[in-house]
Design a protein around this nucleic acid. Sequence first.
DNA 1: GTAATTATAGTACCATAAACTATAGTTGCA
DNA 2: TGCAACTATAGTTTATGGTACTATAATTAC
Lengths: 112, 112
Amino acid sequence: MKQNKKPSRLSKAIVEMAKDMRSGDMVDEETYKKITSRHLGLKEKVDVETLTGDDIRAMREQAHMSQSVFAHYLNLTADYVSKLERGLKHPKGPALVLLNVIHRKGIETITG
Amino acid sequence: MKQNKKPSRLSKAIVEMAKDMRSGDMVDEETYKKITSRHLGLKEKVDVETLTGDDIRAMREQAHMSQSVFAHYLNLTADYVSKLERGLKHPKGPALVLLNVIHRKGIETITG
DNA sequence: GTAATTATAGTACCATAAACTATAGTTGCA
DNA sequence: TGCAACTATAGTTTATGGTACTATAATTAC
């Protein structure tokens, strides 16, 4: 298991700077350093919440889509969506991240 | 599954209306019907492009992240990202959609 | 009526993705 | 300088997320 080490003061500044520049779009892409896990205090924990079947169903109904249509946009099968909503399967990895994006920012993020 | 109230015969207009209302944000969520695959003429084709290893590497470098950090945000392993970039593995399903979102809308979509 | 949907259900199965190891080059810090 | 910790590649093995298949009941459009 990895140690989540203390992020150094300089490293932390780099990350913040990179973030500002990137979002502000004021500096060209090549001027700032690459963000490595040395800079971020990367721990094992990922900032995604585990969504329950009810959560997923609520998201889908909020989007007013059938399982089939919802699955289509997520590049999944309707079959699998049904299983997710009933708690028979649990999304992990990239699928979980994708569902989190929809949950936080809406389905338009991927449809539009 | 209970449907809202009156069964209406209009089908095609509903989708357009729903789309307008959703984007316009003028009508509450419960007033329009659910979008089903009967309304959308959707079959097998998903609107995601297959990304090459070089594409993925370019995306990561544009985000100025190491494979490790990039993988972290996508909820993947650095190992797998390496294989994707070298073309040893090919993303499909939800992973492909997620990469497409990043490709079209930027990494901030999932980091922020 | 009836044909095409939606949703659930159970099983079998495969490729993605993880886990593990190892190697070589690079970077940060004392 | 030295060295620890990182990045990236590489090969092999393993596990499970997600698919495919089939079937049933209820709903909806024509």
